[in-house]
Design a binder for these strands. Sequence first.
DNA 1: CCTTCAATGTTGCCAGTGTCAACATAGATT
DNA 2: AATCTATGTTGACACTGGCAACATTGAAGG
Lengths: 210, 210
Amino acid sequence: MPRTTRAARKSPRSYHHGNLRRALLDEALTIIRVEGVEGVTLRDIGARLGVSRTALYRHFADKRALLAAVATEGFRMLRQQLVAAWETEGRGDPAFHAMGVAYVRFAVDNPAHYRVIFGGVVEPGGKEPELEAEARGAFQALVDAVASLQHDGVFIGDDPLLLATYTWALVHGIAMLAIDGQLPDPVSVEELVRYSFQRLRTGILNAARA
Amino acid sequence: MPRTTRAARKSPRSYHHGNLRRALLDEALTIIRVEGVEGVTLRDIGARLGVSRTALYRHFADKRALLAAVATEGFRMLRQQLVAAWETEGRGDPAFHAMGVAYVRFAVDNPAHYRVIFGGVVEPGGKEPELEAEARGAFQALVDAVASLQHDGVFIGDDPLLLATYTWALVHGIAMLAIDGQLPDPVSVEELVRYSFQRLRTGILNAARA
DNA sequence: CCTTCAATGTTGCCAGTGTCAACATAGATT
DNA sequence: AATCTATGTTGACACTGGCAACATTGAAGG
């Protein structure tokens, strides 16, 4: 006869959790949101889920792998936001601006998560193929938009990869400075984004070419 | 009679080090360069200097304070590089480009150090007045250059603070993507910097205004 | 010169961390 | 019903940052 119900928090099953991997990911993300990456502790995650501290090792190689999975999910969410903004706003010139706003907003709304993705916590070198694929996917959304606007004659006909990387660096830099609290005093994120896209367009738009 | 010479590694004095604060900073920076921030250990630093593991607490409040000092020095070095490029190249239009190149080069040459400065390890919120001052100083070098070029009629007459922040976000974004290994495959840092400044200028230069 | 004292460095100790090895249990397969 | 594999647990270990108490030094003041 089994001891007591000994029910875990999540699932009705007692010993086997059923979907622990998913639960671990969600819990890790919750902690990251509230306390930042530093607050993530394998023991704490286990305790919150009513599970042992090493249960995690049946689903992730180590702590780094867990954070890599969190980063992977971050790239996926980011891509969804970007594509949504692009499609919703009509895949045109204003949609490109909306993409930029959505990008920066994602970082500002999820600063700790964004830092897990880009803060050097996990590197895209060789290992973690899923992470690399998802990263490429997010970037591809931007490249596609750029290529589309080039095709419509809105943007100049430079190498779309270079052009997309250029704009990516810009929004990434804005996002990073913003979540690091490094923006000079009277400058707000919204103001900076608005101004940056204004200046960016003047350099990118075909009409600006003499 | 004193035991033995018991000489530490640095100074001829035995018990008192003489300039331990400086030595701690240098050693921390050396470790950061080689192993990254994760490799920094109070015990290891102490051992390398032939000093106890807690000797550090007579010169820094805690580990965070040590890293904040490293970041402060990083800002100082960065500002020196920027000013040097600006002055050496003649304070003109090409000098601005040289500043950008120097900025990205600093990050690429000292990736781990750069991440200590901007990676959210230490925040510029309230505490650490020296860090904030040095951060402001580095940014001011950029603002001064922008204002100078505006005065000479090379750049458009927008708010210099906004314009400077815009260019800063761009080089910061390039630097971050580069040291994170996130640049898409065939794009090199040098190529991206060159292209970005080309595009940036077309947006910034007064001549580009219809 | 001798005493006193603040600055600086040391040792003992603690809670907390990631991770491994050995073991326990459950659910699926035969 | 017996067996096997996936999944979860317990016990241990080395390592970390940090505190309290103690030790040593060089300088200041009589």
